[in-house]
Amino acid sequence: MNPQVSGSPLWRGGSRSLCTFILLSMLLGGCATKSYVVLLPSPDGSVGEVVIKGEKGEQVLNQAGQAGSLDGRALKIEERQIKEDFGATIAALPKIPVRYLLYFSAGTTLTPQSESLIPKIISEAKTRPAVDISVIGHTDTVFTDPYNMQLALKRAGRVSELLTEKGLKANSMVIESHGKRNLLIPTPDNTWEPRNRRVEVSVR
């Protein structure tokens, strides 16, 4: 025991109230540690950031394995505890979605390389329970907004047709058009850019 503390009036005169205090803080501490966040690396290996804002302050977590209590304090959690608290949750995590990019030589004609992705998309879809698909059409910035909304929709429609023809069975398939409003390669207006003339297929 620290002699400075043991010699203090608090320790001698109020041992009972100190015990209550220690017990209380253990209880409070125990409760607080049961509500917490742990940062993990993303499936691609990168580590992002989580910011916790609570009544005790703000915590920024940006290191893999870093933890914080939900009231905003830093926290040390042992791996054993994390496994105990989250084992079943982690085991239930669905397969991470994949996204394919298909490019067009002209109009709604896919490049041969992109067309060869169609069977790959279908076999990936088969590995997933109740697979959901989004087919999203895009254009480059040549021509007007309404024209490109239509063209991108036609591209997405064409890819969806191909997927269905080749035997894709999905729980849901949504076709969307982003026209020239969601460029892969940022360009000024009226710029010819083959990499922006694409359809994205999200397999979930």
Partner: peptide, 19 residues
């Protein structure tokens, strides 16, 4: 959101437990 704090997420994976 949780009853004791709010979590902002920027491109990552995390575990969250609320007792």
């Amino acid at each position: 959101r949780t009853k004791s704090g709010i979590i902002g997420v920027r491109g990552t994976q995390f575990l969250l437990r609320v007792e």
